[in-house]
Design a protein around this nucleic acid. Structure first.
Lengths: 352, 352
DNA sequence: TGTGGTTGCGCAATCGATTGAGCAAAAGTA
DNA sequence: TACTTTTGCTCAATCGATTGCGCAACCACA
């Protein structure tokens, strides 16, 4: 009790040190102290004696620059804003973790916002990033149109990830969804499956469109004229997966394989198939999009198109760092090399 | 191309507006504009005419206060620092999502740091929070000792979550790990299981210790004198789960139930049991700690002690808000009502 | 002694917003 | 008319760090 009081009396006044107080205590000016603190002593010809005296004092009182004041003066905050649709989604969690770790290594802190898939939250988050003068923004965009983000990118570098827009100069990093879906479908065909059902997510999103294209191209161009494929569904949810299986089975349509476009859809598929007494892969084969450690522990383990979150995070941070160092705005340099697709990995397990 | 140039010329100068420029354009002073912007016009007797003229101009040019400058002047940043051991862990992801959403509702932004279970990263993150003048800190601490965080809490409110320390005045919100482990074990006993193996995680952590206590108390005080329970293992990892099962089986020890102290441990257990051809729950029953949607889709679905991340997030944010509004420091008020345990839910499925 | 160069450091403006104090004009009161 | 009160707004200091410019002291050299 009394110990705590002493603690507070010790700490609260102690925290008051600033360039000014250190200057007074060492007998130098704020300017000199500032230059020593930022390690620019030699460059500004501060004497060795002065440097070490000031450094001693700094160490003694544990001084740390006020990053708010610094940010005001320098217009750099060493902060990056990150907005994602849902941190609960393991794919985004993995992506975020990767990005956060890499940016920390570069000396940046992260302002994180969860847009919960709404455009309103996304705009609010990005506006907040702008007002907070972040040095850069990484976004998994949920808005239909890129125009708002394009406007922001005129003054702050922006990199999109996972989702993107057609006809935009905004740099992005995405999985090659077309290639992933096509490869997985071709694998199913090569194993002899002929009636393949794909269950898609949000139809308007680019990744979903690309997956549909990859799936349909594989079926059409696969060289197996007896193959049939169809696409159904409309959201990345468990219910969507279950509902669509239900619909197909009760319509009596024949299927021997299902391609779920997300792990959530997959769960619905599994539930519904089980309820109908259908076994995987004997009655129906299953492939999914997205990776997750649990998929290896299902019975049977699930084959899947695994997005490489590690490389996606790496590429995103690389691009952003380049943009941030080259200029204040994302303008020119994004056009040439800022848009890239990461190849996903097809992981084969017992489900097909 | 030329369109983009026009865009930039349009936007970059536009972003230059500040209280000063708006003051000049409307003919009032910075003070007056500031008061109107912050909605204090009436309180400071600004005339209706002036208010609406200024508001029109603000809307016209899309002015937004510079939060860095505001933070410097007011010493409030409307920002909370959050540090967790690993965003990849679904439990922490869920907790973070909850906290972020709630804090946003209260007008706070989040600086997120992933300490990757190292004390060094944790200290760096918290120091950065302090330098950035966050209004409060929420931490899932990984350090052995609370002293560093206690020091910080003298000047900034801190709330711990999930993990905590003995003999500290720091406020915390945790699952009642003792009660959760005890209830799950009692359930196993009630179903007739008599040789129960518990596989624990990091031994020094409080949650783990409490789970061990709850488990052992249930076995000892359960009123079933023929029951036997033992605890083994040393980390929250898949490998730990597999290794301990392996060891027990190859030692020929008889077990009819396993209590895994985390989902990762559970996965190792499942893998190892399968490799030995043992079936769940017929040969060995299984219960786990932590919730996850996948557990319902395993075969069989896994019984578990589900931590209530929703209530934990709610309680944490409530406590922090109270601390932040009551005073600058976390000092006194944390003692009485700042330490609370949240009861977990026992979810029964087919694994036991 | 005068000129020029170097060394070592301080002055003061600046970033953009906030806020207590205060002032001029208008309105009210006696 | 003189005095007080209210209205409506401005002034200027402040938060803490950065940085271009410049000055004094010292040395070298002729």
């Amino acid at each position: 009790m009394s110990a705590k009081c002493i603690l507070e009396f010790d700490l609260i006044p102690m925290k008051k040190d600033t360039l000014q107080t250190i200057a007074e205590r060492t007998g130098f000016s704020k300017s000199t102290v500032s230059r020593v603190v930022s390690g620019q002593g030699r460059r500004y010809r501060i004497s060795e004696a002065a440097i070490s005296k000031i450094q001693d004092e700094i160490r003694a009182c544990g001084y740390t620059p006020d990053l708010i004041a610094q940010g005001l003066r320098t217009r750099r905050t060493n902060t990056v804003g990150l907005t994602i649709p849902s941190i609960d989604n393991p794919f985004f969690a993995s992506l975020s973790g990767n990005i956060i770790t890499r940016l920390k290594r570069c000396g940046y802190n992260i302002l994180l916002s969860d847009s919960m898939e709404t455009e309103e939250n996304e705009r609010a988050a990005i506006n907040s990033f702008v007002s907070r003068k972040v040095d850069g923004i990484i976004a998994v965009p949920v808005s239909k149109s890129p125009s708002f983000i394009e406007g922001v990118s005129a003054s702050i570098p922006v990199v999109l990830i996972d989702r993107y827009y057609e006809n935009t100069f905004l740099p992005y990093v995405c999985t090659d969804n077309y290639a992933g879906a096509r490869r997985a479908t071709e694998y199913l065909l090569s194993k002899g499956y002929r009636n393949i059902m794909a269950i898609q997510g949000v139809r308007s999103s680019m990744p979903n469109k690309e997956r549909v294209n990859g799936f349909l191209d594989a079926v059409r161009l696969g060289g197996t004229p007896d193959a049939e494929g169809f696409v159904t569904g409309d959201s990345f949810s468990v219910e969507n997966g279950a509902r669509e299986i239900e619909a197909v089975l009760s319509a009596g349509r024949k299927i021997d394989a299902v391609f779920a476009f997300s792990t959530t859809i997959l769960l619905g598929v599994i539930r519904s198939l089980r309820e109908h007494g259908l076994r995987i892969p004997d009655d129906v084969a299953v492939v999914s999009f997205d990776d997750n450690v649990f998929l290896d522990y299902m019975d049977p383990p699930i084959s899947r198109v695994a997005q490489n979150t590690d490389r996606m995070g790496e590429a995103t941070v690389d691009i952003l760092m380049k943009l941030m160092s080259s200029s204040g705005s994302g303008g020119e340099s994004g056009m040439e090399d800022g848009q890239m697709l990461i190849m996903p990995e097809l992981i084969i397990r017992g489900s097909c």
